[in-house]
């Protein structure tokens, strides 16, 4: 039974642009799914509709096992600059009405999970881009959601930081068993991370292929240089090329 099912979702913006046309997608529990596509193909719109942040123009989002908690990570860290790392991570718990002591204990734990123990009292502007993104991930995971939605979270980071965060994200995913939907425009990133890749085409946004990446986990840095990885990248690139030509 999927965690969430996207059923024939279409989205037309107020300006008449059709962002999504008849998109259907089942997201299975515990899987790491990437949605890969060129800029402007509607992949972020799809994610926002799944999160309930925007309504679909047609079609439905179904939660066969009931609506679950969602964690959301934006392309920017999206932290409150006036709040410490700890207070930023504790925010979802506070909005849910949890008491101060307990939410701060949980937030400290979540920060430790993303490798930021000791940075509780630091303000966002004192953190590097990669560290801010770690805080953002800790905030998304602090409520222990079943579904983690990530909207090109590492696109603005340098390659070295991105590779480290890729590895740490996979470790978190394996440890927590959370279902991840990861939006990206990078073939390499999607192949490294995912069990499954949904390739989208633009104008209107639609899913044109659904590929399994059957390489075993844990995937380490040596996977990035393996022939297996290269073969997968070649295949996914070809599908993306077809999608962009279509």
């Amino acid at each position: 039974m999927p965690v969430v099912s996207v059923r024939s979702v279409s989205k037309v913006f107020a300006n008449g642009v059709q962002a999504l046309a008849d998109v259907s997608l089942d997201i299975e529990p515990g899987e790491f799914l990437s949605v890969l596509g060129p800029s402007g193909c509607g992949k972020s719109t799809l994610l926002r509709i799944v999160a309930g942040l925007a309504p679909p123009s047609a079609g439905t989002i179904e939660w066969p096992a009931g609506k679950t908690d969602i964690g959301f990570v934006f392309q920017e860290p999206t932290l409150m600059p006036w709040a410490t790392a700890l207070a930023n991570v504790a925010l979802p718990l506070g909005l849910g009405g949890m008491g101060r002591r307990e939410r701060e204990a949980r937030a400290a734990e979540a920060l430790a999970h993303v490798g930021l123990a000791g940075f509780e009292r630091v303000y966002p502007r004192e953190l590097s881009g990669g560290m801010k993104m770690r805080v953002s991930i800790a905030r998304a995971l602090v409520t222990a959601p079943r579904l983690l939605l990530m909207d090109e979270p590492f696109a603005a980071l340098d390659e070295i930081t991105r590779h480290r965060l890729n590895a740490d994200l996979l470790a978190l995913w394996q440890k927590t068993g959370v279902t991840v939907v990861f939006i990206t425009h990078s073939v390499f990133e999607s192949v490294f991370l995912s069990q499954r890749i949904a390739v989208m085409a633009a104008r209107p946004g639609r899913i044109v292929s659904d590929l399994a990446i059957d390489a075993p986990y844990p995937r380490t840095e040596s996977f990035r240089t393996s022939p297996d990885y290269a073969a997968h990248c070649r295949l996914v690139s070809a599908r993306l090329g077809e999608a962009m030509a279509a």
Binding site: W82, G94, L95
Partner: peptide, 29 residues
Amino acid sequence: VDRNLLALFDLYGAGRWKTLIHLRLPAAL
């Protein structure tokens, strides 16, 4: 106010009042 922070407050079900106290007022300071 950062649009994405507003979306985040929306996602966690914060009403107008909590959004005002915890997001809009500090951002306006």
